Amino acid sequence: MSDQNITPKETTTPTQVSPLRCITGAIISSGLAYTLYSLMIAIATNFASKPLHSQNELVIKISSAVRTLVVGIVALGSGIFGIVAIGLIALAVQLLIQQLSAKPKSN
């Protein structure tokens, strides 16, 4: 009657944060930021090269809002990935400073 969904407990070992992992993440994040930035420029150029052909004021306002939202969302994604890349580089520098300033243990 009381079938319990028993799943084995997964033991996860926490991964150590290292400067190499931070730099790798920063490279990936900056690549995505640059890709989204290039996409944003392409979208904005495409929208600018194709003006609206309508006499209806409501259509012009709605399409202008949609175009702004599309470019804005892609710009937001690009900005977020850029900030993440900067943060990961700062973390890598902080970890390097901590590792260099740590006193070696002598027996």
Rank of each mutant, 00 (worst) to 15 (best):
T11M: 12
I23Y: 03
L20I: 15
L96P: 00
I73S: 07
S18G: 04
V93T: 01
A42N: 08
F81N: 07
I97W: 00
L20V: 09
A42L: 09
Q94V: 06
A26W: 03
G87S: 12
T35A: 10
Q16S: 15
S49I: 07
I97D: 00
I41V: 15
A48I: 05
E57L: 11
V70I: 12
K105D: 09
H53N: 11
L91V: 00
I60F: 02
S64T: 12
Y34W: 14
E57M: 13
A102V: 04
R67T: 03
T68G: 14
G31I: 06
I73C: 12
S30K: 09
V74G: 04
L88F: 01
I28K: 15
S2M: 14
F47K: 08
A102D: 04
M1S: 06
L88D: 00
F47R: 05
G87R: 02
L88V: 01
I6D: 09
L36K: 10
Q4H: 15
Q55D: 13
T7L: 12
V59S: 02
V84L: 15
L52K: 01
S63F: 10
G79P: 01
S49L: 12
E57K: 14
P104H: 14
P14A: 01
Q98F: 02
V74L: 14
S30N: 13
G79L: 01
K61L: 04
V84Y: 11
T12C: 08
F81T: 05
V70Y: 05
I6C: 00
I6L: 11
G79A: 01
V84K: 06
V71L: 00
G79T: 00
I27W: 06
A44Q: 07
I97L: 02
H53G: 03
N107R: 15
S49H: 03
I86L: 10
T35Q: 09
L20G: 10
T24V: 13
Y34P: 01
P14Y: 00
G77M: 07
Y37W: 14
S30Q: 15
A44Y: 04
I89Q: 02
V70N: 05
V74A: 07
L100R: 04
K103N: 06
K9H: 09
E57T: 14
K9V: 13
G31D: 15
K105T: 13
S29H: 10
L96A: 08
T45W: 12
L58N: 12
Q55C: 14
Y34L: 10
I97N: 00
A92D: 03
F81A: 08
S101M: 08
G79H: 01
I60W: 04
L95E: 11
I23G: 00
Q16R: 12
K103A: 10
G82P: 03
V71G: 00
G82A: 08
I83N: 11
G87Y: 00
V84S: 12
P104D: 15
I83F: 08
L39Q: 09
T68N: 07
G72T: 02
I28H: 10
A90E: 04
M40S: 13
T68L: 07
A75C: 05
T45E: 09
S38E: 12
